[in-house]
């Protein structure tokens, strides 16, 4: 696992610089190697995310955590942007909020998120984001693609109709469990997560059946068998604990 060049192992001999900057007009202090997202959350400022999960490497891919920095024209993903002294960050300007909404709407059109009949109904990050951002309907046409469900595993199943391609499953399986059962296949809109060499999950020889992928999945795509509508509640408490026990820095970074 790569270390983001901005990140480092902090020790007495190698202390990290401290700095202060502003998020939404509030003065905050931070280590130079803490992402803006981390610092914002420390200060109770919420920035929506989907691919980010504390304890997993960063991808900077869902683009929901974009923020504005004064003096910078581009919008920056806060999960992989680091503070500088006196930087002024704006997390909730109309511009970024509007873009976040649109990105979320695009995600809803991409696959078949029929919330009403979903195991994760009521416990889904995608659904919650819609509430948080005030998305009461989707302006873009739904694509209604045809995706498969793989229920060949004895304890879990994956419904690709509900996958948002955040790749948390891929990362947790590789980075925490060390099995690397999950990966991604195809590109663009045809991308899909796969187990082993795109074979039924139940026939995977690398899968240890630990279920971490299921627990980190933000939606109802990955679920435990036997759970009915709205019954699938994910448990993530294990992540920081495993992180700590394995002595890994929580700031690894996937290129």
């Amino acid at each position: 696992m790569k270390q983001h060049p901005q990140k480092k192992v902090r020790t007495d001999l190698n202390p990290s610089r401290l700095l202060t900057f502003k998020i939404d007009e509030r003065d905050v202090s931070a280590h130079e190697d803490e992402s803006i997202l981390t610092v914002a959350r420390q200060n109770g400022i919420s920035i929506p995310t989907l691919c980010h999960l504390d304890g997993l490497s960063e991808r900077g891919a869902c683009r929901l955590c974009i923020i504005e920095v004064k003096g910078v024209a581009k919008l920056l993903p806060s999960c992989v942007t680091f503070p500088r002294q006196d930087m002024e960050v704006i997390t909730n300007s109309e511009r970024v909020v509007t873009y976040r909404k649109k990105i979320l709407e695009l995600l809803f059109t991409e696959r078949n998120h029929v919330c009403s009949v979903c195991v994760s109904n009521g416990h889904c990050e995608l659904q919650n984001l819609a509430v948080e951002l005030g998305v009461t309907h989707v302006r873009y046409p739904y694509l209604y693609p045809r995706h498969a469900v793989d229920a060949s595993h004895s304890r879990f199943s994956i419904d690709h109709n509900r996958c948002v391609l955040c790749l948390r499953c891929v990362r947790v399986c590789d980075e925490i469990e060390g099995a690397h059962t999950w990966d991604i296949m195809g590109r663009g809109i045809t991308s899909q997560v796969i187990t082993d060499l795109n074979q039924p999950w139940g026939t995977s020889e690398t899968c240890t059946g630990c279920g971490k992928c299921v627990q980190v999945c933000p939606t109802g795509a990955l679920s435990e068998k036997g759970k009915s509508v709205a019954e699938m509640i994910k448990r993530r408490q294990f992540l920081p604990y495993l992180q700590m026990m394995r002595g890994r820095q929580d700031d690894s970074w996937q290129k």
Binding site: R59, C62, I103, L107, L143, L165, G188, I189, S191
Partner: peptide, 9 residues
Amino acid sequence: CGKCAPCRV
């Protein structure tokens, strides 16, 4: 490549 949502969709 399908990595980020705005481009993929």
